[in-house]
Structure formats: structure tokens, C-alpha cells
């Protein structure tokens, strides 16, 4: 609603001192004209019911409306992204509002209930899908909170540890001073002062580190501010996708190589040696990746016919990467390798 507040300027200004006169439903105060007490602004749908006007602030009425709205919202739970355009969405919201209004105000009650029920039965799938989506969103919000709590716990623990360390530092400092005093004939008050400063310095350094960590932690959560609330959302004009077949993660691409089949292992001294070296294994260097690349390079000249390629240099040529890459390989332009600079 904040955006709207900007747009509708004046009401915001009028808000001052009218805290109690806020409409319980739309939370706008504009429907009340301050000069005519309880004269309902015609823009708000409350205007029709005289009875309601008197009971505006009675909880029971609010509760009833809330219940009806919730019931409707559970059924008409379309989301904005279900729609082709915002206009469609708004039209839908208007239709839903018609039904809601009628239910609240007991106008054409049977007809409205019937509409609600029939929509519910016709749209079961979408309704539960959208329930699912909202659920996921709230689960994700919860996940954020879980992580935030966890971070708060870490922070508290760090603070406790810090406190203990500080105490220990102080005690050590005192011991140091005592020891120094015992073992030297120096100026007692200077030694005490120095001892204190050392403690102070130690704790300052730690404090700075902790502060930094806390900043990091608080910036962690700044993005995750939950935006709570339950929204009535829109109707759908698009149809659910009809069977498109199973989802293909590879999207039709294949990793089958045309000219070679890779073996699991190659007897190759150069690799055998390195494969036992933790400098390679622990970093995750993948020798199969390397073999695959080597084989690919070795075979990528096959199937290239230079004669054909040469005629294809005019810019209008619709080239497949394959032939062009192969052409380069065939033409020996492999020197783009330069020295490996990475």
C-alpha cells in the first residue's frame, strides 16, 4: 500500500490524529469525511449499508467480513502471474470483489454462494496449485527465519565467548602486574597502568573483530526481511500447459561423440603418475575431462572437407558451429592456443 499512499497524497496528510477512523477493511482513512462524522465516502463499498455505518468499529462485524473474505480468498486464489495482463488481473479482482461484496452484504446470497461453489469445483487443480505456491513461499520465508535465528545464536555465543575471554584477559593482566611487581623494583603505578593498557588493547582488537562479524551477520539478514501477509490474488486467462511430454533437462542436446568412444581408463604414464598425486586429486582435477578433450581435439578434423569449407566464407552463410570450428581445426589455426595465460 505504500506505493498508493504516495500517489494519493492528500489522505496521508489527513491521517494525522485520525488513527481510530481507519477503515477496518482497506485501512484507508479517506472514506471518512472529517467534517461529517461517519458520512461514508462514496468511493468505499461500505456506503450502502446504513447499519454498517454505525457498527464500523465493532469487532463482530469486522470478524464476519474477515471470515467471508478469507473464505472467498481461499477459493479465488489466482495469482497475478496467472494472467496475461494486469488489466485481466484487475478485472478478475473486480469480479471477485463483486461476489465478496454480495456475500458480506447478503445480496443475492444464494446466487453468490453458488458462484463460489461452482468456481471452486471447476478450478480445483489451479486452486490447490496456487495453495501450493503460497505454501512454498511461506516455507521459504520460514527457512530465512530459521537461518536468521541460527545466525543470532552464533552471535550470542560469540558474545558469551567474548565475555569469558575478556574476564580471562583481565585476570591474566592482574597476574602479570603482580608478577612484574614481584620480580622488579620498578615504579609500581606505572607497571599497573601498563598492565591495564595491555588488557584494554587486547579487548579492543577483539571488539573490532566482533563488530565486523556482527555487521556481516546483520547484512546477511537485511535481504531476507519477510514480507508477510495474505493476499487476494488474481484470475487466470491462460490454460494450463497440455501434455508436453517429459521435461528434458538436456533439451535435445547430447554428449555423444561422433568419432570416438571414450574408455574408462587409458594406459598413459603421464597421467598415471599425476593421478596418484594429491595436488591433483584433492583439488578435484578430472582426468576423464582431460582425456575427453584430448580425444575430441584429435578427432575434430575428421569429417571436414576443406574444399567444401573454402567456398563458405561469404558472410551470408548460415553456418553451424561444427563446420566452422572444424574448418579452423582443419586449416591448422590451432595456434589461437597461445601460451596458456590462466
Amino acid at each position: 500500500m505504500s506505493r498508493l499512499a504516495q500517489r494519493s497524497g492528500p489522505p496521508a496528510a489527513r491521517r494525522e490524529g485520525e488513527e481510530d477512523d481507519v477503515c477496518p477493511v482497506c485501512k484507508s482513512s479517506r472514506y471518512l469525511n472529517p467534517n461529517m462524522r461517519f458520512l461514508v465516502n462514496p468511493e468505499c463499498y461500505h456506503r450502502i449499508k446504513n447499519k454498517f455505518r454505525k457498527q464500523t468499529f465493532e469487532d463482530i462485524q469486522v470478524e464476519r467480513e474477515v471470515d467471508i473474505r478469507r473464505r472467498v480468498a481461499e477459493v479465488f486464489n489466482r495469482r497475478e502471474d496467472d494472467f496475461n495482463s494486469l488489466l485481466d488481473y484487475n478485472n478478475y479482482l473486480n469480479d471477485v470483489e463483486d461476489i465478496t461484496y454480495n456475500l458480506i452484504n447478503k445480496i443475492d446470497l444464494d446466487e453468490s454462494e453458488r458462484k463460489l461453489a461452482s468456481y471452486a469445483s471447476r478450478n480445483q487443480q489451479t486452486i490447490s496449485l496456487n495453495v501450493q505456491k503460497s505454501l512454498q513461499e511461506s516455507q521459504n520465508r520460514e527457512a530465512r527465519q530459521v537461518l536468521e535465528k541460527e545466525q543470532a545464536r552464533i552471535r550470542r555465543e560469540a558474545a558469551r565467548r567474548e565475555e569469558q575471554e575478556e574476564k580471562r584477559d583481565r585476570e591474566e593482566g592482574r597476574r602479570d602486574v603482580i608478577n612484574m611487581l614481584a620480580s622488579s623494583d620498578g615504579d609500581a603505578s606505572r607497571i599497573a597502568r601498563e598492565g591495564q593498557q595491555a588488557v584494554l588493547k587486547r579487548s579492543k582488537t577483539r571488539q573490532a573483530a566482533i563488530q565486523k562479524q556482527q555487521q556481516a551477520l546483520s547484512s546477511d539478514s537485511s535481504n531476507g526481511a519477510p514480507n508477510g501477509g495474505f493476499f487476494i490474488q488474481g484470475l487466470k486467462t491462460k490454460v494450463e500447459p497440455v501434455d508436453e511430454g517429459p521435461y528434458d533437462p538436456f533439451q535435445g542436446f547430447s554428449d555423444k561423440r561422433k568419432y570416438f568412444v571414450q574408455q574408462n581408463r587409458y594406459a598413459w604414464d603421464r597421467l598415471d603418475r599425476l593421478q596418484k598425486d594429491t595436488n591433483w586429486t584433492a583439488g578435484g582435477y578430472d582426468f576423464r575431462e582431460f582425456c575427453s578433450r584430448t580425444l575430441c581435439e584429435a578427432f575434430s578434423g575428421l569429417g571436414v572437407f576443406i574444399g567444401e569449407e573454402v567456398t563458405r566464407t561469404d558472410p551470408a552463410f548460415v553456418g553451424s558451429v561444427a563446420t566452422v570450428a572444424a574448418a579452423e581445426a582443419g586449416a591448422g589455426s590451432k595456434d589461437i592456443m597461445m601460451e596458456d595465460p590462466f
Binding site: 500500500m1 498508493l4 468511493e43 463499498y45 456506503r47 484487475n90 479482482l93 473486480n94 470483489e97 487476494i232
Partner: peptide, 25 residues
């Protein structure tokens, strides 16, 4: 989007669709 408290441009009265935050209410 039209939300609670917003006036439609043409001032149509009875069908203002709005998003309502029940939780906050």
C-alpha cells in the same frame, strides 16, 4: 495494481478490488 484505499481513476465506487492484509488486521 489497485489496492486497498486506492481510488479508481474514474471514481467508480462499488467494485474497488484491493489486496487486504488479514494478518495485520
Amino acid at each position: 495494481k489497485r489496492r486497498g484505499g486506492e481510488l479508481p481513476a474514474e471514481g467508480r465506487a462499488d467494485k474497488v478490488a484491493r489486496k487486504i492484509d488479514f494478518g495485520a488486521m
